[in-house]
Design a protein around this nucleic acid. Structure first.
Lengths: 341, 341
DNA sequence: GTTAGCACTCAATTCATTAGAGTGCTAACA
DNA sequence: TGTTAGCACTCTAATGAATTGAGTGCTAAC
C-alpha cells in the first residue's frame, strides 16, 4: 500500500487537529475539518490504511487516532521543505543588545520560552579557535600574583597565584618574557609536556609559578568542560497534560536543572551538519535520555568567528513545529548578526 | 486558657506525626503514640483546647488535626532552644575542596538537596569590602586593550576595550600611572563624578579609555546586581503532595528558575542578625512571594573576610526541621572553615 | 479530671449504570 | 470501483448511589 496525496492530507489534518487539542481525532472531525468532502466512513477506511502504514495510532479501540513518531516525522519533513522555499517574513524578536554575553543569552532563552510557550535552552558559545594570544603576570600585592590569559576569540581567564616569598620586579619581568616568548601564539596541541618541563627548568626556583600559569592556560582553552547552558520556561511543561504527570515532570525538570544532561544536545547539534541549520528530534529520536516523550528542535548560532552555540526548544511531541522553527530561525539570525558589523 | 506542659507534649506529638505522614492526626493515634497514658477522649478535649488556642486546625469536621503556622512556630522555637544547648555531633558532609568557588557552591547546593530531600539554594558570596586593589591596562593586540581590575577580596574583573587607533607604549604607561595614582585604594564611595571628570580631563584624547575603565570598576564593585544563586533538587517538590499540584508546582518552579526572586531571601538573611545564624520562615512568614505554602530555612556563611553568602532549604511546612537545621549548620561551618587557614 | 460510649459528620472508596464518541463491517449506491 | 449510510459493537469517562471508616463532640458515669 502506498501513501497517496489524499492519505497525506488526511494525516496532516489529523496532526494539525491533534496539535491543537491533544485529544485523539475521530473520523467525523476530519470529514468536516478538511475540504475533501468525504464522509466519515471513507475517512475511516483511509485511517485504517494510515494506521497499517504506521503513521497513526489508536490509544484504544473506541478512540480516535493520534499521530505516531513516524507520522510526525513525515509531517515535519514536508513542512521543512515547504518552509525552505517560502520567503520568511521578518518579524522582530525584541533582543536587546547587552554588554555581557551571558545576560544576552539568558534573555534569549527567556524570550524563546515566552514566545513559544515551551521550555527553552541556550548554550553559551564554545570557542573552537584556541590559540594563546596574551599572557601576563602582575603583582597585586606582596603575596599575590595575578595571571591574565587571553585566548583567541577574546576569552579571558584569570588566576590568582599565592607566593611564598616576595618576588623582585626583575624576576617578574623575566618570568613574563619567558612565558610570552615560549607560549604566545601557540595552540593547545603545541603545548606539550616536554615544553612544559623545559619552561619549568628555565624558571628555576620559580617553576611553581610557571606550573600555575600552565594550569590556567589549560583551563582557559578547554572551555568545553563546564559548558554554560541557560534555560527558561520550565513551568511550560505543565501546560501539556501528557508531560505534566509527576513522574515525567520530575524527570524533565531534573534534566533541565542538571544542565550537563543537555550537553548531548549541543554536541550533537554542533557536529551534525545539515543544510538548514535546524535539527528536529521527535520522541525517541532525542539524544537526551529522559526526554523520550518530548520533541526537541535546535539551531546553531555563531556569535563571533568560530564561537558557536546552540539554541533549542523542548516541548511535547504535539508541538507547533512551524512556530518553533520560525522562532529559532529568527533568533539564530539575530544572534548571528549581532556581533558581525 | 493557658498552654501547659501536657498540651505542648500533645502538640509536639501531633506535629511529629504529621511531619512523617502528611495526614491529619487523630486523637486515637496520639493516645497510643505518646506515653502520657491518656485515652483518646481526653486527648480530644486537649485537642479542642489547642485548636481554640490556634496551634492546630481541622481541615474538616470529621478529620484529625494538622498544625497551624503558629503551631509550627512554637515547635521550631522550642527546638532551636534545645539544639542550642546540645553539643552537636560532628558528621561530615562530603564537601570536596574545589579550586573554583562556583563549582564548590554548586556542589554544596546539590549536597544539601540530596541529604535533605528538599530543594536547596546557595548564593554566591557578596563582597562587602570594596576597595580597589589593582588596576592595569595591557595591550592585547593592535586594536584591543585589556583592563584588569582587582577588588579587595580578590574579585577580578576584566574588560576588553576596543581602540580606534593604535596607542604608543608611552601613552599606555601614562594611562596606567594615571589610573593607579588616582584610583588605587579607593572605595566606591570615594570615586565621585568630580574625580571622574578630572581623570578624563587629564587623559585628554584618551578619555574614552578612562571612561571604559571606570565602567568596569563600577561593575566590579557592585557585584550585588547580578547575584549568582545556585539551586538544586527542584524535583523534590514533587515528593510532597501538598506542593505537587500543577498550580503550586508551577509557581514554585518558576520562582526557583528565576533566581532573582530568591534575592529577597539573601538580603533578608544577610541583614537580619539573629544569634544562631539560622533563620526559619514558616508558611506566610516567607519573604519570597509564591512560596507561601513552604517553609524556608536559611543560614549565612562567610568564605573569606567580608564575603558572605546564604545557604537555604525550601520544602513543605511539614519539613524535618531538625534535620534541615543540622545540615545547614554543618555546611555553614564547613564553608566558614574552608578558606580560613 | 478522666474515660467509655454513642450519635453524628464527612471524605474517600466502591460499584453499577449511563452516555457518548468512535470504530469496523456490510450492503447499497453512483 | 470508490463512496456512503447504517448499525452493532467497544471502551472510556462521567455520574451517582451506597458503603466504609476515621474521627469528632458530647454526655454521663467513674
Amino acid at each position: 500500500m502506498q501513501l497517496d496525496e489524499r492519505k497525506y492530507i488526511i494525516l496532516q489534518a489529523i496532526i494539525r487537529n491533534y496539535l491543537e487539542t491533544g485529544e485523539p481525532v475521530g473520523s467525523r472531525t476530519i470529514s468536516k475539518y478538511t475540504d475533501l468532502n468525504l464522509s466519515s466512513a471513507t475517512i475511516r477506511n483511509e485511517m485504517a490504511d494510515l494506521e497499517e502504514l504506521g503513521y497513526i495510532l489508536q490509544p484504544h479501540t473506541s478512540a480516535g487516532r493520534i499521530p505516531s513518531d513516524k507520522g510526525y516525522r513525515l509531517y515535519v519533513d514536508k513542512m521543512m521543505e515547504e518552509k525552505e522555499r517560502e520567503v520568511e517574513e521578518r518579524k522582530e524578536l525584541l533582543l536587546e543588545k547587552e554588554d555581557k554575553v551571558d545576560h544576552l543569552l539568558k534573555q534569549a532563552a527567556k524570550l524563546l520560552a515566552n514566545n513559544t510557550e515551551y521550555a527553552a535552552m541556550v548554550s553559551a558559545p564554545q570557542y573552537h579557535r584556541n590559540k594563546l594570544k596574551f599572557i601576563q603576570l602582575s603583582r597585586v600585592d606582596a603575596k599575590h600574583l595575578l595571571a591574565v590569559i587571553v585566548v583567541e576569540g577574546n576569552v579571558i581567564k584569570n588566576t590568582m597565584l599565592t607566593l611564598d616569598e616576595e618576588l623582585s620586579d626583575e624576576t617578574l619581568l623575566k618570568l613574563n618574557i619567558l612565558l610570552n616568548t615560549h607560549l604566545n601564539g601557540l595552540s593547545i596541541e603545541e603545548i606539550n609536556l616536554g615544553m612544559i618541563a623545559a619552561l619549568k627548568q628555565q624558571a628555576g626556583i620559580h617553576s611553581e609559578i610557571v606550573a600555575g600559569v600552565i594550569d590556567a592556560v589549560a583551563e582557559a582553552i578547554k572551555a568545553d568542560e563546564d559548558l554554560e547552558i541557560y534555560t527558561s520556561g520550565t513551568k511550560n511543561f505543565f501546560k501539556y497534560p501528557e508531560l505534566a504527570d509527576h513522574e515525567r515532570a520530575s524527570e524533565l525538570i531534573t534534566t533541565f536543572e542538571e544542565k550537563q544532561l543537555l550537553t548531548e544536545l549541543v554536541q550533537d547539534n554542533l557536529s551534525g551538519d545539515n543544510n538548514t541549520g535546524i535539527q528536529v528530534y521527535i520522541g525517541s529520536e532525542t539524544p537526551v535520555a529522559g526526554m523520550k516523550d518530548c520533541s526537541i528542535v535546535t539551531a546553531t548560532y555563531e556569535l563571533d568567528e568560530g564561537m558557536k552555540g546552540t539554541i533549542g526548544i523542548i516541548g511535547p511531541k504535539r508541538m507547533d513545529y512551524e512556530k518553533v522553527v520560525s522562532n529559532l530561525r529568527l533568533l539564530k539570525r539575530q544572534l548571528d548578526d549581532l556581533y558581525k558589523r
